[in-house]
Each structure stands twice: as structure tokens, then as C-alpha cells.
Amino acid sequence: MAQPQEAPGPAPRDTGVNFFRPRPGFMRKKVMYTWLLLLSWAIFTFGFQFVLALQDEGSGGLLTETVILGFPFHYWFTGQFLIVWFILLCFLFNTFVDRLTKIYQKRK
């Protein structure tokens, strides 16, 4: 671990770390990407189950009747596609961060 540096005085508040108020520049951009990915992570995982639960009321809707690759659509989506989606999200995150790091390390 790099040792915490001795602080001469209180840090100016714009250097604070807060997920909801990221400071401008690298951190703000990174947090923006993080929000985007978190949203698509949550919508695809929980949002889909929510929609599924709503349509389940009327037993046998489009999501459960459609067949894809041999599976009922809802099952294929959750059991197989979501894992692919997660891998893709990690891939996107890495691409974003690689690009950001390149930009901001050059400026240093």
C-alpha cells in the first residue's frame, strides 16, 4: 500500500470523494460510465423479472410462449443471455476505462 501522505491542511472540498458529486475530470467521466453500466445491469436483470412478473398474471404471455434456441424466451434470456450480457458489460467497462486512462495520463 502506498502510504497516505501527510496532509498539510484540510483538503479543498472539490477534491472530496462522493459518488453522487464526483469532481470534474477523470472521476466525473468514470462515474458517468459507471452509472450507465449499473443502469443497464439493473434493468436487464431486475427490470426483466419485473416485466415477467407483470405478464405472468395473465398466465402464458409472449415472453413465456416464444421459443428461442429450443428454450422458452424468458428462460433463455435469464439463464443464458444475461451471463453473455454481464460479460459484455465488463468488456465495455474495460474499454471505457482504457480510453479514459489514456486521455488523462497523457495530460499529467
Binding site: P4, Q5, E6, A7, G9, P10, T15, V17, R23
Partner: peptide
């Protein structure tokens, strides 16, 4: 303050 600086820097 030093841990806050460490986090941010």
C-alpha cells in the same frame, strides 16, 4: 484528513 486525501489523490 490524511485518509481523505489518500482516497482522492
Amino acid at each position: 484528513e490524511k485518509i481523505r486525501r489518500f482516497l482522492s489523490e
